[in-house]
Design a protein around this nucleic acid. Structure first.
Length: 230
DNA sequence: CCAGACGTTGTT
DNA sequence: GTCTGG
DNA sequence: CCAGACGTTGTT
DNA sequence: GTCTGG
């Protein structure tokens, strides 16, 4: 489901979109963000919203090492309020993850090959994922802040590729998601409408997390895409 | 009481 | 840390 | 999510 | 096959 995404926003665009109050940081264009990497996310802080670099893959406070983070890149929206690993983060430490699009891998019938699909908003504008974050103290005494992206059941379009999709939040819901006082955040966990999303096949170059360049989101030749859509 | 798990995805 | 299983 | 590693001892 | 790293 959501194991790779893009962030193609300048600092100025992001600041306006998210109404940030924190000081500017350098924001590279990212075409292939992978788990364990540090990612800019938005948190509620001092009545405003700040951007911070957190490691993707939530490590619970009680974990002995970072490794568990690799399998906690997502958190099921239906259950995270009750799960020990996510419960406290969901209650008090929700975050917003700005994105431009994300990847899914469509199984090609008959083979083991998988076709990467790039999914964006239908207007190709920014998407905002709902996330939860946690702070972990390493044995060395270092503090590592980590996050997971919340998932929901898929909408009709996404169900073509997977049985899960990332939680995508409307701008109207951003404040409620970030507010630690809000007790009804679960009400915001719902699939985003198909009508507002767009999918297109892209190069398998995206498979390697080392590849991180503009060519990754160019549509593949129509010949290769044939049979995948329509 | 202590010990041990605590998570997701996809695949079979 | 906190919950479940034994 | 996919790619890539997957091990130890002793010696330099 | 399964785990870790990105």
């Amino acid at each position: 489901m959501c194991g790779r995404f893009t962030q193609l926003l300048t600092w100025a665009q992001l600041r306006r979109l998210m109404r940030l109050t924190s000081p500017p940081i350098e924001l590279p264009l990212r075409y292939n963000i992978a788990p364990t990497q540090r990612v800019p996310v938005v948190r509620h802080e001092g009545g405003g919203r700040s951007l911070a670099l957190l490691r993707w893959g939530l490590v619970p406070a009680w974990a002995k090492d970072l490794a568990i983070g690799s399998s906690m890149i997502n958190a099921r929206g239906e259950t995270l309020a009750a799960k020990p690993a996510f419960r406290s983060a969901f209650k008090r430490r929700r975050c917003l993850v700005p994105a431009s699009g994300f990847y899914e891998w469509d199984k090609v019938s008959g083979g083991k090959a998988k076709q990467p699909i790039y999914i964006t908003a239908s207007d190709e504008g920014p998407l905002v994922f709902g996330g939860v974050w946690e702070s972990w103290a390493s044995p060395d005494g270092d503090t590592v802040e980590t996050f997971a992206i919340v998932t929901t059941a898929p909408n009709e379009m996404m169900s073509r590729f997977h049985d899960r999709m990332p939680l995508i939040l409307d701008p109207d819901d951003h404040d409620a998601w970030l507010d630690p006082e809000r007790e009804d955040a679960s009400a915001l966990v719902r699939p985003y409408p198909s009508e507002l999303m767009l999918a297109r096949p892209v190069s398998t170059r995206v498979n390697s997390p080392k590849n991180d360049d503009p060519s990754l989101i160019e549509p593949v030749e129509p010949r290769r895409a044939e049979g995948l859509f329509g």
